[in-house]
Design a binder for these strands. Structure first.
Lengths: 149, 149
DNA sequence: GTACATTACTTGTATATACAAATATTCAAG
DNA sequence: CTTGAATATTTGTATATACAAGTAATGTAC
C-alpha cells in the first residue's frame, strides 16, 4: 500500500519528504511485526540483540561498551538491559580482572537455548519481509547505507 | 557506511536479515537527526505531525480518530498529544455538536506561525537526506511501499 | 423506550527512553 | 606518589510508550 494511502495524504511536496514519512511509517510497521514476535518468546528486541552479540563472541565475554557499539539501537541503557537478562538467567556479569572498571558479560546455557528457540521461529518473522525479492532487499539495504552517508 | 561496519558485524546470514538490521539502524539514525531539529523548535516529531495534519484540513476541524489515522506513528496517545499542544497554545479543542463523543481540534494562529517557522528550517533537515539522488529517494520509497505489502 | 453493543475518547499503570549527573577505576604528567 | 583527566559503568529523573481498563454518547433491536 502506498504511503499516501496509509496516512491519507494526497501528495507530498517532494520526493524526500515522501521518503522521510515512508521511513518513519515503515519503521512503525516493522515494530508492530517484531514486538509481538519477541514478546511471545519472552524477550524484547533489544534483549535479543544483546544475546545475539554475546553468542557471536562466544566463548569470549563482551563488555558494556562493546555491546553498546554493536547494538542496532544505540540508545538502549545497557546496564538495565543486562539487569533484566540476569534476572531471566540468560547472561552472567563479572568484573574484569585486568581492568576493574569494565564488566564482562557472558551468555549462559539457558540464554543459548532461548536464542535457539528464537532461531526456530525466525522463518515466520522473515516471511513478512518477503514481499521484496532478494535483489530488492539488497538494493534497499545498499541505498539505506548510502542515505546515512 | 555499510551496516556491517556500523554495528561491527562481519556478515549476515542472508540479505533479509541484513535489511532488517539496516531498517532498524537507519530509523535510529534518522531519529537522531530529527529529535534535536524539532527540540530546538520546541516541538516533538509527533506534535509537528499533528499540527501539519490540522493545517492540511484548515479551516475544517479534525477529530481524534482522524488524527490518529493520519499520523505516521499510530501508537501516539492523541489525547495527551493534544493536551500538550493546547498548553503551548497551538491548537483548540471543542466538543462536536453533531456527535458529542467527538472532539474537534483546530490549529490556532500561533500554531500556524510555529509551523511556518519549522518550514523555514526544513531545508537544513532535508539536506541530510540528500546523499540519495531524487531518483534513488523515489526508488527506496516505492520499495518500502512494496515491502509492507 | 429500555437494554446491549459500538464508537470515541480518557485514564491508569508498568515499562522504556533520553539525557544528565554521579561514581569508581585507571592513566598520565610532573 | 599525588593530582587531574579520561574511561567505563551506574543512577536519577522527566517524559514517552504500550496496552488495558474506564467513561460517556450514540446506535440498534426488540
Amino acid at each position: 500500500m502506498r504511503i499516501e494511502d496509509e496516512i491519507h495524504q494526497k501528495n507530498f511536496k517532494d520526493d524526500y519528504r515522501r521518503l522521510l514519512a515512508n521511513l518513519l511509517f515503515t519503521n512503525n510497521w516493522l515494530n508492530q511485526q517484531l514486538m509481538p514476535f519477541f514478546k511471545d518468546l519472552g524477550l524484547t528486541l533489544q534483549q535479543h540483540n544483546v544475546l545475539a552479540i554475546l553468542r557471536g563472541q562466544q566463548p569470549d565475554p563482551v563488555c558494556f561498551g562493546d555491546i553498546q557499539n554493536r547494538m542496532v539501537d544505540r540508545n538502549s541503557n545497557v546496564t538495565r538491559l543486562i539487569d533484566k537478562l540476569i534476572e531471566k538467567g540468560y547472561v552472567t556479569r563479572d568484573i574484569c580482572q585486568t581492568n576493574r572498571r569494565m564488566i564482562e558479560v557472558r551468555i549462559t546455557e539457558p540464554g543459548m537455548r532461548k536464542l535457539g528457540q528464537v532461531d526456530e521461529n525466525f522463518p515466520k518473522l522473515f516471511a513478512k519481509l518477503h514481499n521484496l525479492t532478494q535483489e530488492e532487499a539488497v538494493l534497499v539495504s545498499n541505498l539505506l547505507d548510502k542515505l546515512r552517508g
